[in-house]
Lab assay of single mutants.
Amino acid sequence: MASQGTKRSYEQMETDGERQNATEIRASVGKMIDGIGRFYIQMCTELKLSDYEGRLIQNSLTIERMVLSAFDERRNKYLEEHPSAGKDPKKTGGPIYKRVDRKWMRELVLYDKEEIRRIWRQANNGDDATAGLTHMMIWHSNLNDTTYQRTRALVRTGMDPRMCSLMQGSTLPRRSGAAGAAVKGVGTMVMELIRMIKRGINDRNFWRGENGRKTRSAYERMCNILKGKFQTAAQRAMMDQVRESRNPGNAEIEDLIFLARSALILRGSVAHKSCLPACVYGPAVASGYDFEKEGYSLVGIDPFKLLQNSQVYSLIRPNENPAHKSQLVWMACNSAAFEDLRVLSFIRGTKVSPRGKLSTRGVQIASNENMDAMESSTLELRSRYWAIRTRSGGNTNQQRASAGQISVQPAFSVQRNLPFDKPTIMAAFTGNTEGRTSDMRAEIIRMMEGAKPEEMSFQGRGVFELSDERAANPIVPSFDMSNEGSYFFGDNAEEYDN
């Protein structure tokens, strides 16, 4: 993207840094990872977990959730003011799984939030270390993106479920800051804005008074975040219109849905970061690795190297396929839920299948599930090659597409044709070009129609051997075009429920 120079890199967003050079960025990201790792080690000690239990991804998720809940100030305040039966607002906890007599047992633990905050700050040299908290939120978000298709949420806001490739980060909490905003897809931002506008339509006082002023500035800020994701002048001009509207209503909703559809071809720039579970960072720190000293990046080879040398386990339900569970977590670790499966298959070195073909449910185990038949197995999170994460949407291309997802959002900077089903997408653009945004709409449609099938995206960008740390010898991959490109292809993934 041309304006790259004016933006802070995501590592800076990730670490609240002012302008830093590459070495400083690597050190501050490393410091953040160190903090998460030290916190995780301490929690495993508190909970008396064995090494194996500490490497269980379900335990990692519970521990991450506990610290996120302990620092969720708004919710904590709300819980104190609106006490609900049987919930102690000062405590947080969740299921911890232990191996007892050759069987997995679930144990519900409860801790004072104050105590968890103390352990977290102690692991982070006394700081609140917001960057580390956001990092864990993005890992949870990436896992949700890989596990669930947001059909219901899309339909509720009037969008087409086939636009799911635009929904990265749709389950990120509001408090995820600049680093969170960077990884949100165009569809996620559109959905947040539509929800806001709908509230304004239904509630006369939404934009009024002292609160209304705050609401208005939040609305304009979200519009600017979305505008910054678009790469064409016409899309940005249309966002200006939406932002400046005196009284946002149905016309703005129409414009936003139009823009979301246009992003299936004229893709937005959305950041991709490899955020790993805390149970990967903990053992690495415990083994003596100093992330701050060595430096770390979320968008280069580092996460690949770390996963190459990590042992992570997962509980497996009786009829689940461990290899499929591994694929789910591998995609989440690489922030690749909406990437082209052919690119992923090449990088991973084994075939990556669409969601609907995987015999696996989510990673988390519900409290009512029976533990008797639970097994555990090693997650295979290694890769054959590594590639640089991208934040450009890439230019655009036609490809055989599917009944489910009709476009992709690249996660890796790797040369390819970008699949999208042009006739299906263009069919949504018939007729409606009147109104105050008509010239911009016409211009956007013209650009979409001009998108050429034979153009290559990320020209000359390749993948790298894991021994090639400096990215000196790019390998331009070859793809098996007979395979499906979309992950949520004609899909039956479970729906995400809060």
Score class of each variant (00 low, 15 high):
A2P: 00
T6C: 00
S9K: 00
S9V: 00
E11Q: 10
T15S: 07
G17L: 01
Q20S: 14
A22G: 02
T23Y: 06
E24W: 02
I25H: 02
I25V: 14
R26D: 01
R26S: 14
S28E: 02
S28H: 12
V29M: 08
G30S: 06
G30M: 07
G30H: 01
G30V: 04
G30R: 03
K31Y: 02
D34K: 04
G37R: 08
R38L: 13
I41Q: 13
I41P: 10
Q42C: 09
Q42W: 05
Q42D: 10
M43K: 13
C44V: 15
C44N: 11
E46G: 07
L47F: 09
K48L: 08
S50V: 03
Y52T: 15
E53A: 14
G54H: 14
G54M: 06
R55A: 09
R55F: 07
N59L: 11
S60F: 04
S60I: 13
T62N: 15
T62M: 01
I63K: 06
I63G: 00
R65H: 05
V67K: 07
L68E: 05
S69V: 03
S69E: 05
A70S: 15
F71G: 05
F71K: 11
R75N: 08
N76P: 00
Y78G: 03
Y78R: 05
Y78Q: 02
L79A: 07
L79N: 06
E80F: 12
E81A: 03
D88W: 00
D88T: 00
K90T: 15
K91Q: 01
G93D: 06
G93E: 10
P95H: 09
Y97L: 04
K98T: 13
K98M: 15
R99V: 08
R99E: 06
D101E: 14
D101I: 09
K103M: 11
W104A: 07
M105E: 07
M105P: 04
K113I: 05
E115L: 03
R118M: 09
R118C: 14
Q122G: 03
G126V: 06
G126P: 01
D127L: 14
D128H: 15
A129C: 07
T130D: 01
G132Q: 08
I138E: 02
H140G: 11
S141E: 09
N142Q: 07
N142I: 09
Y148D: 05
Y148I: 13
Y148Q: 02
R150M: 08
R150F: 05
R152Q: 11
A153C: 11
L154D: 01
V155G: 09
D160Y: 08
D160Q: 09
D160S: 01
P161N: 04
R162V: 12
C164Y: 01
S165V: 01
L166Q: 15
Q168P: 11
Q168F: 04
Q168H: 07
S170L: 07
S170H: 07
S170C: 05
P173N: 08
R174K: 09
S176I: 06
S176L: 01
A179P: 09
G180M: 08
A182T: 08
K184Y: 03
K184C: 06
G185W: 02
V186L: 12
V186I: 15
G187T: 04
T188L: 04
L193C: 14
I197H: 00
I197S: 10
I197P: 01
I197T: 15
K198I: 10
K198P: 01
K198E: 08
R199I: 03
R199F: 03
R204S: 01
R204I: 08
F206S: 08
W207H: 02
W207F: 15
R208E: 11
G212N: 09
R216C: 06
S217G: 02
A218I: 04
Y219A: 07
E220I: 11
C223H: 11
C223K: 11
N224H: 12
L226D: 09
K227W: 08
K227I: 11
G228K: 11
G228H: 06
K229T: 08
T232R: 15
M238D: 03
M239Q: 04
D240I: 05
Q241Y: 03
Q241W: 04
R243M: 12
R246Q: 12
R246H: 12
N247Q: 10
P248I: 04
G249K: 07
I253H: 09
D255P: 08
D255W: 05
I257F: 14
F258Q: 07
A260R: 00
S262L: 03
A263D: 01
A263P: 00
A263W: 03
L264T: 12
L266S: 04
R267P: 00
R267M: 09
G268H: 11
S269K: 07
S269T: 14
S269L: 07
V270I: 13
H272I: 02
L276Y: 08
P277L: 05
C279H: 03
V280Q: 08
Y281D: 07
P283G: 15
A284E: 01
S287N: 14
Y289I: 15
D290G: 13
D290P: 14
F291K: 13
E292V: 14
K293H: 15
K293R: 13
Y296E: 04
S297L: 07
S297F: 12
G300H: 05
G300D: 05
G300L: 03
I301R: 15
I301F: 11
D302C: 12
D302T: 03
F304C: 12
F304M: 14
L306P: 07
L306V: 10
N309Q: 12
V312W: 10
S314Y: 07
L315D: 11
L315W: 06
I316F: 05
I316P: 02
R317P: 06
N319R: 15
A323R: 13
H324E: 03
K325G: 03
V329C: 10
A332M: 13
S335F: 06
A336E: 01
R342G: 15
L344A: 02
F346P: 01
F346H: 05
I347G: 01
G349L: 13
T350K: 14
K351N: 10
S353I: 14
S353Q: 03
S353G: 05
P354G: 05
R355N: 12
L358P: 09
V363I: 15
V363L: 15
I365L: 15
A366V: 03
A366I: 11
S367M: 11
N368H: 07
E369G: 11
E369C: 06
N370A: 14
M371R: 00
D372E: 15
D372Y: 06
E375L: 14
T378D: 02
L379S: 03
L379N: 13
L379C: 13
E380R: 04
L381I: 08
S383I: 03
R384G: 07
W386L: 10
A387M: 02
R389L: 00
R389F: 07
R391P: 01
R391I: 04
T396K: 12
T396P: 04
T396V: 06
Q398T: 01
Q398V: 09
S402C: 07
S402R: 15
S402F: 01
Q405T: 02
S407R: 10
Q409N: 11
A411W: 01
S413Q: 06
S413Y: 07
R416N: 07
R416I: 08
N417E: 09
D421F: 04
T424E: 09
M426L: 15
M426W: 03
A427I: 07
T430Q: 01
T430W: 03
T433S: 08
G435Q: 05
S438K: 00
D439H: 10
R441V: 02
R441C: 07
A442Q: 00
R446V: 11
R446E: 15
R446W: 00
E449M: 06
E449Y: 09
G450Y: 14
G450P: 09
G450A: 07
E454M: 04
M456F: 04
S457Q: 15
R461Y: 03
V463L: 10
F464C: 02
E465P: 00
S467Y: 03
S467V: 13
E469C: 01
R470F: 00
R470V: 00
A472N: 06
N473W: 11
I475A: 09
V476C: 14
M481G: 09
N483W: 00
N483F: 04
E484L: 00
G485T: 00
Y487A: 01
F488Y: 09
F489Q: 02
G490P: 00
G490N: 03
D491P: 00
A493L: 10
E494D: 11
E494L: 03
D497K: 02
D497M: 15
N498V: 05
N498T: 14
